[in-house]
C-alpha cells in the first residue's frame, strides 16, 4: 500500500462525509423538508473517492443523477451542496439546479445530470479539450449499469477511441437501473467492461466496495491514459444501500438483501478492517473523524435551513450571458 497516513485519513474522511451526507438526506427527505427527486449514493463511496483522490481540480469529471458522491469526492463544498439540495439561493447553483444538477466547474466537476447517458459524450469533449491543452489531464465519466445501455454511451466510447481522447469511462455496476436488474438489461456477456473492450479500449475490473482495490486500479488506469494511450474503461462492482430514489418501495430486492449488503459489502467497514489488519490507522482516530463528520453534516443542514431563499426575479437570470 502506497498511501501515506494523511492520504488514508483524507480518503476515509471523504467517504464518511459522503455516507453521512446521504444518510442525513434520507432522514430529511422523509420529513418532507426537501423537494424534488433525490438519488442517494450510499454504498458506492469507495468508487467516487477511490477515483477522485487521484485527481486535481484541472482533471474533469462528469456525473449522473446519483451525483452527490462524485461532487463531494471532487471537492465540492459540503455546505454549498446541502444548500443547493434545500433549494437555497446560497446553494452551489443558486437553487436553480437541485440535487440532480449540482456542478462546480472550477473544481472540475462538470455537473450531475438528469438525463441518463448524457454524461459520456460531454466527458469525451472535455477530454479532447484537455488533450489540446497538452498537460496530461484527463476527463472521467461516471455511468451506471443502466446508462451503459444508452446509445449516447456507445457513441461516446467509439468517439473517444477514434480520437484517442484522454477519457476514462467509469462504470458503477450497482446491479440495478431503477427497478430493473442488471442481469436482464445488459445483454452482452453480463459484463459492461467487455463492451468497452469491444470498442477497442483497454479495460479494468475491480471490487467497488473495496477502496484499496479502486484506488490501486485507478492508479494504473490513470497512468495509462495520462501517458497518451487514449481512453480506458473500468467496471466497479458496487452496491446501492437505498432505493433508486427516496420513496422507492424496493420490491425488487431479495429477502434480506439490504441487510446483507450493509453487513458484507460496506466500503467503510471494509476500509476500517483493512487499515486495522495492516496496523495503518487506529480505530480511535477513525472514531474521532466520524464524530467530526457528523458535526459537519449537522452544521451543513442547519446552515441550509437558515440560508436565504431565492426570489421570483431569479427565474430569469443566467439564461444567457448577454441578452
Amino acid at each position: 500500500m502506497q498511501l501515506s497516513r494523511e492520504e488514508l485519513l483524507q480518503a476515509y474522511r471523504r467517504m464518511k462525509v459522503i455516507r453521512e451526507f446521504e444518510e442525513r438526506l434520507h432522514v430529511e427527505i422523509a420529513t418532507g423538508q426537501i423537494a424534488g427527486f433525490t438519488h442517494l449514493y450510499c454504498g458506492q463511496e469507495a468508487v467516487a473517492v477511490g477515483v477522485c483522490e487521484h485527481l486535481d481540480a484541472s482533471d474533469k469529471i462528469v456525473s449522473t443523477h446519483r451525483g452527490h458522491g462524485h461532487c463531494l469526492a471532487k471537492g465540492c463544498d459540503v455546505d454549498g451542496m446541502m444548500k443547493e439540495i434545500y433549494g437555497s439561493r446560497e446553494g452551489l447553483c443558486n437553487g436553480k439546479g437541485g440535487s440532480m444538477h449540482i456542478a462546480d466547474v472550477d473544481k472540475g466537476m462538470l455537473g450531475a445530470n438528469g438525463i441518463v447517458g448524457a454524461g459520456a459524450p460531454i466527458a469525451v469533449g472535455a477530454a479532447l479539450s484537455l488533450k489540446l491543452d497538452g498537460q496530461g489531464k484527463v476527463a472521467i465519466t461516471f455511468s451506471g449499469d443502466g446508462a451503459c445501455n444508452q446509445g449516447t454511451t456507445f457513441e461516446a466510447m467509439n468517439l473517444a477511441v477514434v480520437t484517442k481522447a484522454p477519457c476514462i469511462f467509469v462504470f458503477e455496476n450497482n446491479h440495478y437501473s431503477e427497478h430493473t436488474g442488471f442481469e436482464y438489461a445488459v445483454g452482452t456477456n453480463k459484463d459492461i467492461a467487455s463492451r468497452a473492450e469491444a470498442f477497442g479500449m483497454k479495460v479494468w475490473r475491480a471490487d467497488g466496495t473495496d477502496f484499496f482495490a479502486v484506488y490501486e486500479t485507478m492508479r494504473d488506469v490513470l497512468e495509462y491514459v495520462r501517458d497518451g494511450n487514449g481512453p480506458a474503461a473500468v467496471e466497479f462492482d458496487t452496491e446501492r444501500f437505498f432505493g433508486h430514489f427516496e420513496g422507492d418501495p424496493q420490491n425488487y430486492r431479495g429477502k434480506g438483501e439490504l441487510e446483507r449488503i450493509r453487513a458484507e459489502r460496506d466500503c467503510l467497514t471494509n476500509f476500517r478492517q483493512k487499515v486495522a489488519d495492516a496496523k495503518l490507522l487506529e480505530g480511535t482516530v477513525l472514531d474521532a473523524i466520524d464524530e467530526e463528520v457528523l458535526d459537519q453534516i449537522d452544521a451543513a443542514v442547519d446552515a441550509a435551513r437558515a440560508a436565504e431563499r431565492p426570489q421570483a426575479e431569479d427565474v430569469l437570470t443566467n439564461v444567457y450571458v448577454t441578452y
Partner: peptide
C-alpha cells in the same frame, strides 16, 4: 418502455413495480 414491467432480472421478479 423502461420499467413497464419493473423487476425484470431481480429477486423480486417481474411486476415488482409495473411502471413508475
Amino acid at each position: 418502455g423502461e420499467d413497464v414491467v419493473g423487476g425484470m432480472g431481480t429477486a423480486g421478479g417481474p411486476e415488482a413495480i409495473g411502471g413508475i
